[in-house]
Simulated scan of single mutants.
Amino acid sequence: MSVPEQQVTVGFVGLGNMGWPMARNLHAAGFRLVVRDIEAAKQDRFAAEHPGAVAAASPDAFAPAGLVVTMLPNGAIVRDAMLGWGIGAALRDGALLVEMSSSDPSDTLLLAAGLQPFGVRMVDAPVSGGVPRAVTGELAVMVGGASADVAAAQPVLRVLGDPARQFRTGRLGSGHAMKALNNVIAAATTCVTAEALVVGKRFGLDPRTMIDIVNASTGRSFVSGVFDSEVLTGRYGTGFALGLLAKDVHIAASVAAAAGADVPVIALTDERYAKALTGLGPAADQSMAHQAWWDEPLSQ
């Protein structure tokens, strides 16, 4: 695709499991990149492996960028990068931040207000699809923000995600709200799937047979596929950390509280994932959550 002149240089902040392949896809599409990661060795390695990319030694390295993508663990870290470390102040008036992390919408709005004095605009564009779709550039993207800003983000968003799976969610912050609500649905489904397997096992049913039946019946979901490939095999390799999912579940509960909604299932899911986080730690794969809820194994 052709690269608009004003966006030839793109900043990319966060070279983790998702961020690295996303930045790589932007580089392959012809964008000149300025990259930043809290691990200096990682940003240096990216620059060494991608000719023309620059590892940011200081916030001033982002001055040429008309657009910056952030892909970080949470909104507090995004705020620290943009306002604490100082990327926002280094950007020119009219630059655009495309915040693709899974963040709390309230953090998103606070960051947007903090960037206003520098003339930096913002859209929130969290993604779904995990590392495999980050690699292929086929992520689903949920985009919130002013129409003109969303339009300005398109040259980058169309590289990182499948245009057919890009969804305009509304005002700034709505993308992050939608991402959390999507993930709490998956998390709640994980809770009830695990419960059903525990009940069935105690009744004498084989967990493998149960999942085979569920996957051929009305209980089938993305989560039942995860139980098939990751939980019953003991592989636990979805690549998505428990700490990140627990964070998203808690964001969904916070959004619900701000909306004044009576949501007992979301509240209970938040409690269950808080327990899993305490028992297993944030680095555990999210598919391991059931291990903190019962002593008995589900894997065969």
Rank of each mutant, 00 (worst) to 15 (best):
N183S: 12
D162G: 02
G173M: 04
S147W: 11
R168F: 08
G173Q: 06
V159C: 04
Q166Y: 03
L172E: 05
A180S: 10
T169V: 12
N182K: 10
M178Q: 10
G161K: 01
V150I: 15
H176W: 07
M142I: 13
A148C: 08
P163R: 04
A177P: 06
L181C: 14
R158W: 05
A152W: 02
G161F: 02
A180K: 06
P163G: 08
V159H: 00
A151P: 08
F167L: 12
A180R: 04
A153R: 00
L160C: 03
R158Q: 12
A177I: 05
M142F: 15
G144I: 02
P163L: 09
R158T: 06
V150N: 12
R158C: 11
A164S: 11
F167T: 10
Q166H: 09
P163I: 11
L160Q: 00
P163H: 07
L181N: 01
Q166S: 14
S147E: 15
A164W: 05
H176E: 07
R165W: 04
A164Q: 09
N183I: 07
R171N: 09
S147T: 15
A152T: 09
T169Y: 03
N182Q: 06
D149M: 13
G173V: 01
F167N: 06
M178I: 08
K179S: 11
K179R: 04
